[in-house]
Amino acid sequence: MSATGQDRERAAMQAIGRGGLESLLDLLNQDVMTTVYVQMVQNPRFRPEQLDTHGASPEEVELCLRIFESRGLLHRVDDGSWVTNAPENALADHASRLEERARTLRAATPGLSRIYYDAMARSPRSLEAVGVELLESLEDVNAAMSELFAATRRQVVSMRTRSPRVLMIMNRTPERIAEPVFNSHGETLRLRVSFDSGLLEEPAMPAAVAARTQAGDEIRFANAIPFTATTSDNGVTVMDIDDPSGTSVGMRITHPGVSAAIKRVIDDTWVRGVRWTGRGTVTRADAEPLDDRDRDILALMLGGVADATIARQLGVSQRTVERRVRRLLELLGAATRFQAGAQAVKRGWI
């Protein structure tokens, strides 16, 4: 036996002593496993020495056979020979067992994640006013957001612009976007979010907003949101930004004064935002209804969205949008969009 083969045999015996046949996989080259199994299929009734294993030692072949036996791929007979079980049954059974393990792991993941983030939220570092912590990757930002949600009592407020994490979330499936957000106690959190109106240029934005609205979020649109930030009701803020090179970075802020200042910016952004309500009926002061298209244009227009972007979002020509905007200004008796916004609020149109 070669020195390498002897080393593998010693390691194998130690692994067996620890009761782990599955751990023997780490000791074998995957090519050896494949070679032995193919030989088993080609020789359904065999003795180990009859297999052409292309240089694998007898000890390695024996380890392979023991692993395959534990998986139900073959069985030993009285005369020292082995019999390969039919692959269509044996492999299907083995695959079913692996799938059951995978289902168990997936089912356990949410609960284990809540335990993990609850522990992170209760760690000494999260309870101290540590100031400002730099997050150096999108993965760090995601982890910080998970910790923020875990430690939140009831509500999260946020303002969001075209930042790395926001773009990542927007490109998820609508079903995943609409998933509820929980704290570490499994309680559903209330989210109040202001989006920068420039995000309406993103093709995935309308579907993403519709999904979160369905999930119960309160959503508005506002102009010139400077950065993405989220603050919990326990005073922790996470910022999602990118550096000049475009690399995803962020900050986790636990300093009470800094976090409170950012929350004031989030609250001010919410106050000046335009409420997102979807399609419906809006009534003028004289009770003559606006149609759905007028209502959509009014909401987007008052959110500061340019006519060209409104046209793309609604699937109409820019000329149509411009004509309807002029009509809305006339109906409101306004000379500017700002005046139109004030009149629309006063009349209860939005």
Rank of each mutant, 00 (worst) to 15 (best):
M1E: 14
Q14A: 03
A15G: 08
S23E: 13
D26V: 01
N29L: 02
M33W: 00
V36I: 01
Y37F: 07
L51P: 01
S70Y: 03
S70R: 04
V77D: 06
D78C: 05
G80N: 15
G80E: 09
D93G: 05
L105K: 06
A107F: 13
G111T: 08
Y116Q: 11
Y116K: 08
D118A: 08
S126R: 02
V130Y: 09
E133R: 07
E133N: 12
E133Y: 12
E133Q: 13
L134D: 15
E136R: 14
S137V: 11
S137Q: 13
M145K: 05
R153A: 06
Q155R: 11
R162L: 06
R172Y: 15
E175N: 13
E175Q: 08
R176P: 02
I177F: 15
E179H: 09
V181I: 12
G186D: 03
L191W: 13
F195P: 08
L200M: 05
P206V: 14
A207G: 11
G216Y: 11
A222R: 04
N223F: 04
A224N: 13
I225D: 04
V236L: 09
G246I: 12
T254P: 03
H255D: 10
V258D: 13
R264T: 06
R264F: 02
G273F: 06
V274W: 09
D292G: 02
L302E: 13
D307S: 09
Q313M: 14
Q318Y: 07
R324G: 15
R324W: 02
L328V: 07
A342P: 01
